[in-house]
């Protein structure tokens, strides 16, 4: 095969690569769209009239009628869906049923709080998980590996709130190091904020860390078992170089996949952790609204959670494509 052909093939496949990426992005957009329809229909499918079921059987007909107007229930469903989605995209999410405040106001700073907590937890958990995963893979079947494996197996078996309450019992009640309730307000400095969220963040980190570390370890062991790693050892390459130069570039793509997969635990964990620590976040709001059946708020926060989750997965997939040597350098 002459080089010219190779270069030609390369540029041709650059197009394929772009196509793959565009396809992946399109896929996410469609998924999000379908989910928004599902969320909307889900509320529609509620048995009986929404207004009546919320106001109760004894409500005056005029009240019900006014309420229906407020919810735009007098319009046909597809019109309502389009206006709902249109408003949503523009930042108008309607009003809460329970306290009639604009949902955007309710959600705004709670979303930023949740993202703050999740981001801090991810920043601690992801690098730590990858480092521990690599170390346990390298020193597999040693005492160190067995202990870490045992601890992480327990951690994935524990419910999030168990870890949270153990931490509270130890670090807050017994040692009085950190607050057991994470109250936030807008005036707090970054350091104060960080101090406040130490326990929720620690809980979240432990949950995500355990899952991520176990899967990273498996991914790295897979790479270490390949013939090209044996070849590198037989070429007299040092152990460190084998790991850094020969194993890591190939492990990158599976490890990114692992990180993406574990975003689900981060999202679920954040809801529980917020409830335990009474943290003013989106998860807390969602749980409260579900209990109160405040459907517009549930719809809005559900869609936000979905968008964030799908967005994170998209980014991870794109990174994974970009880090795969075969995909990056096509035939």
């Amino acid at each position: 095969m002459p080089t010219g052909l190779l270069n030609g093939g390369g540029s041709l496949n650059m197009k394929d690569m772009t196509a793959t990426i565009l396809k992946r992005i399109g896929h996410s957009v469609i998924t999000l769209f379908v989910i928004s329809i599902l969320i909307f229909i889900g509320v529609e499918a509620l048995p009986g009239d929404l207004a009546e079921s919320i106001l109760g059987q004894n409500a005056l007909p005029e009240t019900v009628e006014a309420f229906r107007k407020e919810l735009k229930l007098d319009l046909p469903p597809h019109v309502r869906y389009i206006s709902w989605l249109g408003d949503f995209v523009q930042g108008d999410m309607g009003r809460s049923l329970s306290n009639h405040r604009p949902i955007t106001d309710l959600i705004g700073w709670r979303l930023s709080n949740t993202l703050f907590l999740a981001a801090v937890a991810a920043m601690v958990a992801v690098p730590l998980a990858i480092i521990l995963g690599i170390l346990t893979a390298l020193y597999r079947n040693t005492l160190f590996d067995r202990i870490v494996s045992m601890v992480s197996l327990s951690a994935i078996s524990f419910p999030e709130f168990f870890i949270a309450y153990i931490l509270i019992a130890l670090l807050s009640v017994k040692l009085s190091l950190f607050p057991s309730i994470a109250t936030m307000d807008g005036q707090m400095s970054l350091m104060d904020k960080l101090y406040t969220i130490v326990l929720p963040c620690l809980t979240l980190t432990m949950v995500v860390l355990a899952h991520m570390m176990r899967q990273t370890r498996a991914a790295i062991i897979n790479v270490l078992a390949t013939p090209y790693i044996e070849m590198a050892l037989l070429k007299g390459v040092s152990r460190l170089r084998v790991v850094v130069v020969h194993a890591f570039p190939n492990a990158l793509s599976p490890v990114i996949n692992v990180v993406a997969l574990n975003m689900a635990y981060l999202v679920a964990g954040v809801v529980i952790v917020e409830v335990v620590f009474v943290y003013p976040g989106l998860g807390q709001l969602l749980v409260d609204s579900v209990a109160k059946r405040d459907l517009p708020v549930v719809q809005a926060s559900g869609l936000i959670f979905a968008s964030v989750y799908i967005g994170l997965n998209l980014i991870a997939d794109l990174l994974s494509i970009a880090s795969n040597p075969r995909l990056r350098n096509p035939r």
């Binding site: 499918a45 689900a264 679920a268 809801v271 749980v287 609204s289 579900v290 979905a306 989750y309």
Partner: peptide
């Protein structure tokens, strides 16, 4: 599966 399970369950249970 493209949706966090807990959020999905919460939404369905709310309805």
């Amino acid at each position: 599966l493209s949706f966090p399970t807990l959020i999905f369950a919460l939404m369905v249970l709310s309805v």
